Computed example of a mutant assay.
Amino acid sequence: MPKPQLARPLVCVVDDDSSVRESLPPLLMQVGYAVRVFASAEEFLTFDGIAGIACLVLDVAMPGLSGPQLQLELARRGHAIPVVFITARAEDDVRQRLLAQGAVECLFKPFTDTALLKALALALGGH
C-alpha cells in the first residue's frame, strides 16, 4: 500500500510588483511548496484559505494596506502566520522594527534565492 503523500506547505506571496509574483512561484514550487500569489493585501484578505497558510512572503510597501498593516490585521483576526517581509527600501531601521514586531525575516530586494529559502525554512521550523 503506498504511503499517503504529505501536503505541501502553502506559501502565499503578497506583492504589488508583478515581476515578484511571476518569479517566486516557480522557485518555491521547485523546492516543494504550494504557492498562491496576491497583488494586494486587500486581495489576500478575501482568500478563504488563510487558516491553511504555512508562511507569508509579504512586501512592506504596497498601495492600500501595507505589509505591516496586513500583519497587524491578521493578528487582530487571530491568524498567527509566520511572515517573511521583502522590501525595496534597504533601511536597517525598518528591518529592525519589523523583526521586533514578530517578522521571521526582512529581506532587501534584490535578494538571492538562497536567502529567501533560508528565511522560509526558518519560518517553517526547518520544513
Rank of each mutant, 00 (worst) to 15 (best):
M1S: 10
A7L: 09
C12F: 03
D15V: 01
D16R: 14
S18E: 15
S18K: 15
S18G: 09
V20E: 04
V20Q: 07
R21D: 01
R21S: 03
M29T: 12
Q30H: 14
V31S: 02
G32D: 01
V37P: 08
V37Y: 14
S40T: 06
E43D: 12
F44M: 05
L45R: 08
G49H: 09
A51R: 15
A51G: 11
L56I: 05
L56K: 09
L58M: 06
Q69V: 01
Q69E: 14
Q69M: 03
L70N: 04
Q71F: 02
Q71S: 09
Q71W: 03
A75Y: 12
A75P: 07
R76C: 04
G78Y: 07
H79R: 11
A80L: 12
I86F: 07
A88W: 08
A88D: 02
E91L: 10
D93Q: 15
R95D: 01
R95G: 01
G102V: 09
V104Y: 06
V104D: 04
E105F: 05
C106L: 05
K109P: 00
K109I: 02
P110K: 12
P110Q: 07
T114E: 11
T114P: 08
A115Y: 10
L116V: 00
A119P: 06
A121V: 13
A121W: 04
L122H: 10
L122Q: 13
